[in-house]
Design a protein around this nucleic acid. Structure first.
Lengths: 170, 170
DNA sequence: TAGAGCATGTAAGGCGTTACATGATTTC
DNA sequence: GAAATCATGTAACGCCTTACATGCTCTA
């Protein structure tokens, strides 16, 4: 939906995008894409338009309906939760990637600030867990937890830098 | 399989583990776990033993068969690829988490070294991509790519620190 | 004896995967 | 005219999700 809002496209276009860039690892298989587009059309979130003109074979170009755009906006605006951060960082980044095109840079800043405060709460808790576990678990377990913490710290720095970058842009 | 090698368990035990710790986000639903255990048993990778003794209700405790352990080892030993790193960091960390229990700390060091050399190749390429894209894509797109790079850099540092930690342990 | 927790399971529906099928158009 | 590429689809199969079902055991 985000991609189609930026540029109305056919299933084949989406396949090319998914197979060339490793977009959060979406499937580029036709058996996934075409039925999914049909489902979204049936739900009234997308509308297809058949293009014939340009000498090539017919293409079905999809674009979001007003209802679809509303759903997309709702998804982008839904509050970030710790749960989402743990289970699906890729979804968080996907939302960030589309937020500027659907709203504006102010919305992107708000998103980054939300992410930042979530991380500022979360990281100390993880460190506390790590301290409690010290000595009780094998080295590999401790290291794995540390890897997670380092990753979140890197994200925190990144979010701060991102906020600055947006503010300097203006 | 990794969990069952560390400690033979029932489906209920696994559900508790998956719901309490957020283990790479495995599903704790009975409709996922019980059929999966049955499939693995049918494939000859697990063997179930019914425990009755301790006054509680019957429990089916699963443990890997020799064939299952061999498969587990093969999975843990299969070479790390860039593709896996991009698509499923959680699988990489899962493998690391079990490698010490199934093999030994020397294997864990080898794993970290493999990860390190993969990252040393990969990070400069990502940076080159970022440079090429500079000015051509919206700020949010550039930032998203930067977030990925920072994450990989954090992992690289972590892997180096991990190797040191193992060497000091000895 | 009612309820909470232990423990295993089943059924319907949804969606992704792999693999195959089809036909149009461009290129050599 | 053969092969590659464009472009859309279908079918079988597998697995997960949600929700429901079952029955045992311990505690109040």
């Amino acid at each position: 939906m985000g991609l189609l809002h930026e540029k109305p496209s056919s299933g084949y276009d989406l396949r090319k995008i998914f197979s060339s860039t490793s977009m959060g690892s979406f499937s580029d298989s036709p058996g996934a894409i075409y039925p999914a587009l049909e489902r979204l059309e049936k739900q009234g979130l997308l509308r297809a338009k058949i293009e014939e003109g340009s000498g090539l074979r017919r293409r079905k170009v999809y674009r979001p309906t007003p209802k679809g755009l509303a759903e997309l906006k709702q998804w982008l605006e839904s509050p970030l939760t710790r749960d989402l951060l743990i289970r699906s960082l890729s979804e968080v980044m996907l939302r960030f990637a589309f937020i500027e095109a659907v709203f504006d840079s102010a919305a992107a800043i708000r998103f980054l600030q939300q992410l930042k405060s979530l991380l500022l709460d979360f990281i100390p808790e993880l460190k506390a867990q790590l301290d409690m576990l010290r000595g009780k678990i094998p080295l590999s377990g401790r290291l794995a937890l540390e890897c997670g913490i380092k990753g979140y710290e890197a994200q925190l720095e990144w979010a701060s830098a991102g906020i600055k970058a947006y503010q300097e842009e203006k």
